[in-house]
Design a binder for these strands. Structure first.
Lengths: 192, 192
DNA sequence: AGATTTCGTTCACCTGGGTTAACTAATGCA
DNA sequence: TGCATTAGTTAACCCAGGTGAACGAAATCT
């Protein structure tokens, strides 16, 4: 919980009273590896803050799982496209490892907006960062080859590369595991 | 201006007084074909509503222009990633045709939020729709081949295909003009 | 109208990711 | 502990898009 408060304090100023309110609005959630934070067809009921663990977003392309994103400890997780308008989700969010979260419901988030002075700002910053991430990822598809996207993934998530299976990384990069193997081989021979 | 009001009424309820306020907060802007709504490095100062004409978003990938999106009459246009946090834009928005807009500044948008009862909702719906579009586009890169993306473009923007040069469409689809020519030829031969 | 640039097409050749399949190593399970 | 499944690698072949160049048709300029 202290991690969550620290992260929020990086984004907005809160006093002790507000800190107490925020703490009362979140509740813990534990996911085992393989459990779902949201599943396709369900409405995403929470925004979660990951204290420990790792989740992946993926969509189902008849049978094929395409990995869209990862979130790790210290980050917020939600399908805002489902959470905000309260529509059924068209993507899945699944724990890759056993994962501990603090989650806030839609109703409690409205309370947070109403009672914490910079609450709305917090919400806005959260959405903005998700939005910017998705745009950056889109731009990367326009700009970069799969090999380059893999290189950037390693660069941006060096420590995660150990915890995420290759075939999820391949999927995130937009290619097949066999192709990622090939790319890795090419990178090693070009070793720098 | 009446187009703008009609579009807003599709999204939220406003009374006559609010309608008058909204009208007072927008001002007209005319762009000649080739003019910029925002240019890289500038802060995007407006959200615009296109009354007539057509714009494209593109990013500069050292010399290569990658087209990210199009907006036509009846749609809102802005680089929210620059407009909201008031950061310099990393993309360009350029008129493809002579374009007539009604634009609202950041300050006036805050006034709209403050004085129109469902103003905040209007803002939220606007952002949400842009966000959803960008996610759908990202998913399409994971799911679909360039040929399929072109097919979907024709389906979604049938009337625009006449007004947008091929090489912009190719760029939007994520391929070279030569490849788009090839794809078009394949589509014709498979004619259905 | 004539000259020039821009746009779209076609072609030949190249390249990198997809596919299928085989194999090994690691992991999970009984 | 041993067996079965899953994960990662390699290889051969295929194919769609990239590249560079050439060409004709439009659009633009003077």
């Amino acid at each position: 919980m202290s991690q969550l408060i620290a992260t929020i304090k990086h984004l907005i100023s809160i006093d002790e009273e507000e800190e107490a309110i925020i703490k009362s609005l979140f509740k813990p959630l534990e996911l085992k590896a393989g459990d779902f934070f949201v599943e396709e067809g369900q409405v995403c009921r929470y925004v979660g803050f990951i204290e420990k663990g790792l989740v992946r977003y993926y969509m189902n392309d008849d049978g094929n799982h395409k990995t869209l994103y990862f979130n790790k400890e210290g980050e917020f997780v939600s399908n805002y496209q489902s959470f905000l308008p309260r529509n059924p989700s068209n993507t899945n969010i699944q724990a890759i490892e056993d994962t501990s979260l603090q989650v806030i419901s839609f109703e409690n988030l409205q309370r947070l907006y109403a009672t914490v002075r910079e609450g709305e700002k917090l919400g806005r910053l959260g959405i903005e960062s998700v939005f910017v991430n998705s745009l950056e990822q889109l731009k990367s598809f326009y700009r970069d080859s799969p090999a380059e996207r893999y290189r950037q993934f390693l660069h941006a998530y060096a420590e995660l590369a150990q915890r995420i299976p290759q075939y999820y990384i391949a999927s995130y990069v937009g290619i097949k595991p066999q192709s990622l193997s090939r790319i890795r081989k090419r990178l090693v021979s070009k070793a720098d």
